[in-house]
Design a binder for these strands. Structure first.
Length: 265
DNA sequence: ATGGTAGGTATCCTA
């Protein structure tokens, strides 16, 4: 069975019906994982996403901030959420797809501006959530589990995941301490970075461009913050991975673009 | 070194 999964930080699901429709029409994902929906569950535009063909929904939002959602054309089972760092942020939703494929949709904190846990509680929170998730995946490791972990992890781990490795070493999202925590999370369950298994690490690749650039396309100062990881049991199912760069040029764009994987499961 | 834009909300937070 073919399975196409797309992850996208939409930066407000209510503000971008046109961009969402375009993404769905062009990519035709079976499952679409959204982050930063920025809406309480009772105000989520359910009928809009149902009209786009997503009959099965797992919505985990809150007012104004964060929020994740799993939209699916295929049945979802065992939907639940995770709460990390004893904080009631809506950052992690889980569902199981047909065939026992466990899908985790994650939104890691951006972490503020200062990469110092003493001065910046948001950076401390970012690192703490990565540690807690790593411990949880390590403790429940089972290499027969078929897991897809997607989301805005807010870290660009490789040199070519940022426009300038050297200039971003002290910038939150690419500091060595964050990269080490992300790597620990990846290794906690033997996850494979699906996008870099398809696009060679020697190639620059970004999924986010700041709104603050005068001309994002000309400057091209992007970062690869959005990821798709596969557990060892699922890694051989990977067929393709793509980044929808053109979505950054849509009218009223999100600052992130969709990332898609094709699996033969 | 600095400030730049965007979204949601309520007069400022987060990204």
């Amino acid at each position: 069975m073919h399975l196409r999964i797309t992850t996208w930080n939409i930066n407000s699901v209510r503000l971008r019906p046109a961009a969402l429709a375009k993404v769905v029409r062009q990519l035709e994902p079976d499952v679409l994982c959204l982050q930063e929906t920025k809406v309480a569950d009772e105000a989520f535009p359910r009928s809009m996403v149902e009209d786009l063909g997503f009959e099965h929904l797992h919505i985990h939002g809150q007012k104004a901030y964060h929020g994740v959602a799993i939209l699916s054309r295929r049945p979802l089972e065992g939907c639940h959420t995770h709460r990390w760092c004893a904080i009631d942020d809506s950052r992690h939703a889980v569902c199981t797809l047909q065939g026992g494929i466990e899908l985790h949709n994650v939104y890691v904190p951006a972490g503020g501006d200062e990469p110092d846990i003493e001065k910046n509680p948001k950076f401390r929170h970012k690192l703490a959530m990565l540690d807690e998730m790593s411990d949880w995946f390590a403790a429940s490791r089972d290499d027969t589990r078929r897991i897809v972990l997607v989301g805005d992890l807010n870290i660009a781990p490789l040199e070519n995941d940022v426009w300038s490795h050297k200039q971003l070493l002290k910038v939150v999202s690419h500091t060595p301490v964050e990269v080490a925590k992300l790597e620990r999370l990846r290794q906690s369950h033997g996850f494979v970075d699906a996008v870099r298994a398809i696009v060679p690490p020697e190639e620059k690749l970004y999924t986010w461009w700041s709104y603050r650039a005068r001309d994002w396309r000309a400057a091209d100062r992007g970062r690869r913050l959005d990821h798709v990881w596969l557990s060892p049991a699922l890694a051989p199912a990977l067929r393709d991975a793509t980044v929808m760069r053109e979505a950054r040029g849509f009218d009223l764009p999100s600052d992130h673009v969709p990332v898609t994987v094709d699996l033969d499961v």
